[in-house]
C-alpha cells in the first residue's frame, strides 16, 4: 500500500458512518491487530487451561527470572510512551524530534530483546529448554513469538526512521500512528504475559 493510499479514507466518496471515513491504514492495522489478538488469545487461553489441569506448574515457574521480566516491562512501557511522544512531535511539525523519539523506541526495543536473550541464555544453561516440559514449551513459544513481534516492530521503526529523514517525508507521517498502534499492541500482549508466566 502506498503512503498516500494509507491515509485515504476507507470508503471515499460514499455515504457512510465514522468507520467508513477512517484512514485505510488505521482500519487495516486494527484488522491486523484483531488477527493477532486471536493468536495470542488462543495461546493464553490454552496455557491457562493446561496450567490449571496440571496443578499450577509452580516448581517450573520458580526458575524463570522475574527481575529481568520486571525490568523488561518497564522498558516496554517506556517505549510505548516514546511512540506517543513521537506522534505528538509529528503532529506539531517537529519531524527531527519525532525521529529522535522513534530512535529511542528502537533502542528500547533492542534493550528488551537483549535482556530477553540474556534470560534465555541463563535458562538454557540451567537445562531449561523448550523440550523440558509443557510449561517451558509454552514459555518459549509465547515469549519467543512476542519477541519476534518486537523484532518486527524494531525493523519497521528503523525503516520509518530512515524514511522520515528523506525529502518529502511528510507523506510518511501517518505511518507513525499505524506503527504506533502495532507497538502498543505488542506492549499490551506483554502486560498479560508478564503476570501469567513470571508472577502468578
Amino acid at each position: 500500500m502506498s503512503a498516500a493510499a494509507a491515509s485515504e479514507p476507507l470508503r471515499s466518496g460514499v455515504e457512510g458512518g465514522e468507520f467508513a471515513r477512517m484512514p485505510l491504514g488505521r482500519a487495516g492495522m486494527w484488522w491486523f491487530l484483531a488477527s493477532e489478538v486471536m493468536v495470542f488469545g488462543t495461546l493464553i487461553a490454552t496455557y491457562s487451561l493446561n496450567r490449571v489441569a496440571a496443578g499450577g506448574w509452580d516448581a517450573e515457574r520458580a526458575h524463570v527470572n522475574a527481575r529481568i521480566a520486571a525490568f523488561n516491562t518497564f522498558v516496554l512501557l517506556t517505549s510505548s510512551l516514546t511512540v506517543v511522544l513521537s506522534l505528538q512531535a509529528a503532529h506539531e511539525g517537529l519531524r527531527a524530534r519525532a525521529r529522535r523519539f522513534l530512535l529511542l523506541t528502537v533502542l528500547l526495543g533492542c534493550v528488551f530483546l537483549g535482556m530477553k536473550s540474556l534470560e534465555y541464555g541463563t535458562e538454557i544453561a540451567h537445562g531449561y529448554t523448550p523440550a523440558s516440559g509443557p510449561f517451558w514449551s509454552y514459555y518459549y513459544l509465547m515469549t519467543g513469538l512476542h519477541g519476534l513481534h518486537v523484532l518486527g516492530g524494531i525493523v519497521a521503526n528503523v525503516l520509518l526512521w530512515i524514511g522520515l529523514g528523506r525529502p518529502g517525508a511528510e507523506r510518511l507521517e501517518p505511518r507513525i500512528e499505524f506503527l504506533g498502534l502495532y507497538w502498543h499492541f505488542v506492549d499490551v500482549v506483554w502486560i498479560f504475559l508478564f503476570p501469567l508466566l513470571y508472577l502468578s
Binding site: 465514522e18 477512517m22 486494527w30 484488522w31 484483531a34 489478538v37 486471536m38 488469545g41 502498543h184
Partner: peptide, 29 residues
C-alpha cells in the same frame, strides 16, 4: 494503553467490534 495511547475511546464503535470479537472467540474457545 488501549484508551489513552491507542486512543480507542475516540474511535468508531465498529472498531470495538473488530478489536473485541477475537477476544470473545478466545474466551469461547
Amino acid at each position: 494503553v488501549l484508551r489513552h495511547y491507542m486512543h480507542l475511546k475516540a474511535q468508531p464503535a465498529m472498531l470495538y467490534v473488530i478489536a473485541f470479537t477475537p477476544v470473545l472467540l478466545a474466551v469461547v474457545m
